[in-house]
Amino acid sequence: MMDFSQIIPALPALTDGMLLTLRLLGLSVVGGVVLGTLLALARLSDRRVLSGLAKFYVNYFRSIPLLLVISWFYLVVPLIYNWLTGSFEPVGAFTSCLVAFVMFEAAYYAEIVRAGIQAIPKGQVNAAYALGMGYGQAMRLIVLPQAFRKMTPLFLQQSIILFQDTSLVYAVGLLDFLNTARSKGDIVGLPHEFLIFAGAVYFVISFGATLLVKRLQKRFAV
């Protein structure tokens, strides 16, 4: 009853879709971790205004749905771009989605980084200060390298979730892996087969990655 043979001619398009998914994922992880780390440092800062702002940012993005952010930014980012640059050049769905993912995921990465930094004993910072380091050096050379090592499994887990969440760009019509599979399936009249195939591919990648993370965790733990 099911006919999966029609997937083969669609493989080049599906591969392009997957490449877009992975590009979005990679850039979002990098951007999210960088912004998230800055947010975590701001959150832990002694300056009340700074830490208050960071706290608000994190709470704000953690209490609204990702899909809302994607839809909003899709409409809003071009407007803001236009305000800032005066140019009417279209921004494109990819860029607006990327901005949405980076800003949204940063809130989640920030919480991971904050917990990681707080798990480093205060004595480490004191020892760095005692050696004559400043705040920036102590963070960059002593605290963050230790924190990041501990946080790696959590980062990876969050990134696996993000990998699955990239499928939400369907909402703005970006041709990622899922959307490519949907449209190809509709064109050849086999939507079920393509949908099952898409689900299976997502499953294999994220389940495989989960197993890998578990193995890494074990190795790190010893």
Binding site: Q164, D165, S167, L168, Y170, L178, R182, P191, H192, L195, I196, A198, G199, Y202, F203, S206, F207, T210
Partner: peptide, 16 residues
Amino acid sequence: FRNVPLLVQLFLWYFL
């Protein structure tokens, strides 16, 4: 259920 994106699951339940 944890390794298939929510949206894919929704499409499966709704369309398939």
